[in-house]
Simulated assay, not measured.
Amino acid sequence: MFSICYFLNNKSSVELEEESELTLAAISPVRVTPRPGGPGPYRLATICLATLCAVLLISIIAVTAHYKNKPPSAGGATSAMQKQDAAAVSDLTAAVSKLQEEKKRLQEEKKRLQEEKDELLAKLEPAIATKAPEGIKPTTAAPIVCPADWLLFNGSCYFISRTTRDWPESQSYCQSKGGHLAIIHTPEEQTFLWDHLPRGHWRAFWFGLSDEHTEVIGNGFWEVGEPNNHIDEDCGYIVKTQVLERVAIRSWYDAPCSMYWPFICEKEMVAGGSTAVPH
Results as ranks from 00 to 15, higher is better:
154 N>Y: 02
81 M>Q: 10
81 M>F: 01
117 K>E: 09
102 E>N: 10
85 D>I: 02
155 G>R: 06
107 Q>G: 13
115 E>M: 12
114 Q>L: 15
150 W>H: 10
108 E>V: 03
59 S>C: 12
75 G>Q: 08
111 K>G: 05
155 G>A: 02
136 I>R: 09
155 G>Q: 00
162 R>I: 01
64 T>K: 10
106 L>W: 15
133 P>E: 10
117 K>C: 07
137 K>G: 03
158 Y>Q: 04
75 G>D: 07
141 A>N: 04
157 C>M: 03
160 I>S: 07
111 K>R: 12
108 E>A: 14
86 A>S: 14
86 A>W: 07
61 I>N: 11
146 C>F: 00
68 K>S: 14
82 Q>P: 02
139 T>P: 06
136 I>P: 09
65 A>V: 11
136 I>Y: 03
71 P>G: 04
139 T>Y: 02
139 T>H: 04
109 E>F: 00
90 S>Q: 11
156 S>V: 01
162 R>D: 12
75 G>M: 10
139 T>C: 05
108 E>H: 13
118 D>G: 03
106 L>C: 14
106 L>F: 12
64 T>A: 15
60 I>D: 13
130 T>Q: 12
149 D>Y: 04
60 I>H: 15
159 F>P: 06
88 A>Q: 04
106 L>M: 11
117 K>I: 05
157 C>N: 04
80 A>S: 10
82 Q>D: 05
99 L>P: 10
114 Q>V: 11
107 Q>D: 15
153 F>N: 08
105 R>Y: 12
89 V>E: 05
110 K>T: 02
155 G>C: 04
70 K>S: 05
122 A>M: 05
140 T>E: 09
148 A>D: 04
132 A>L: 04
141 A>W: 00
102 E>T: 10
100 Q>S: 14
110 K>R: 14
130 T>Y: 04
81 M>N: 13
103 K>V: 11
100 Q>L: 11
135 G>L: 04
83 K>A: 08
128 I>V: 09
121 L>D: 11
78 T>A: 06
122 A>L: 08
146 C>P: 02
74 A>M: 14
92 L>M: 09
156 S>L: 02
126 P>M: 06
156 S>P: 02
156 S>I: 01
151 L>I: 07
104 K>P: 01
64 T>Y: 12
66 H>A: 15
98 K>P: 13
58 I>W: 09
129 A>T: 03
79 S>T: 06
119 E>C: 05
143 P>R: 01
100 Q>H: 14
150 W>V: 02
86 A>D: 12
102 E>I: 02
64 T>Q: 14
86 A>N: 13
